[in-house]
Amino acid sequence: MTALKLSDEIEQKIAQMWPRFPEDRVRKVLCLPVLYMASQQFGRVDEAVIRLVAERLELPPAHVRGVATFYTMIETGEVGEFHLQICTNIGCMLEGAYDVLEHCKKRLSIEKNHGTSPDGKVTVSEVECLAACGFGPVAQIAQKGKPDIPLYFEKLDEARMDQIIDALCEGRVPVELGV
């Protein structure tokens, strides 16, 4: 087994942020950004990643674990290659978000409001308000082990959702549909 190593991007981030915080506090401050980037680098944060981050920042693993489990964007469970996150909060609900969610679940044979398609490709989750409520229903997509996809997929209906799912099943993020 090769030893895990934090990416150069993470080391750069540490170097950039370090001087912006008090010297005696900065290790703890960096815990969240480093965990988030590590979650992207390794696809999820498991015990080995927690230990790696704890060691690098000289923090107790229990602290790092506590932070990792608090924030939903730090992936600690198993997810598919793509993670389709659909807002069903009030603004999007009024625009039919639950119908769109049900449609996705049906197409991908997912039972609960958080689950992964049987082929392990797409995870669908119901998420909370994404601050785009006037353009709902809104979704965001994450790709395992890849950097942020800085797009929202807005005004979704079943037809648009089908286009998104078709693309994901082909193994690509339909960036042309996002804003």
């Binding site: 506090r25 290790r27 703890k28 969240l32 506590g66 608090f70 924030y71 939903t72 909370e128």
Partner: peptide, 24 residues
């Protein structure tokens, strides 16, 4: 400083806890 998915971090004291690198 980027949050990572927790509504409560909008509450100002939770925000500060988060910005210090802990749970919000």
């Amino acid at each position: 400083y980027r949050g990572a998915g927790a509504y409560i971090c909008g509450e100002e004291t939770a925000l500060l806890s988060s910005l210090e690198g802990g749970r919000g």
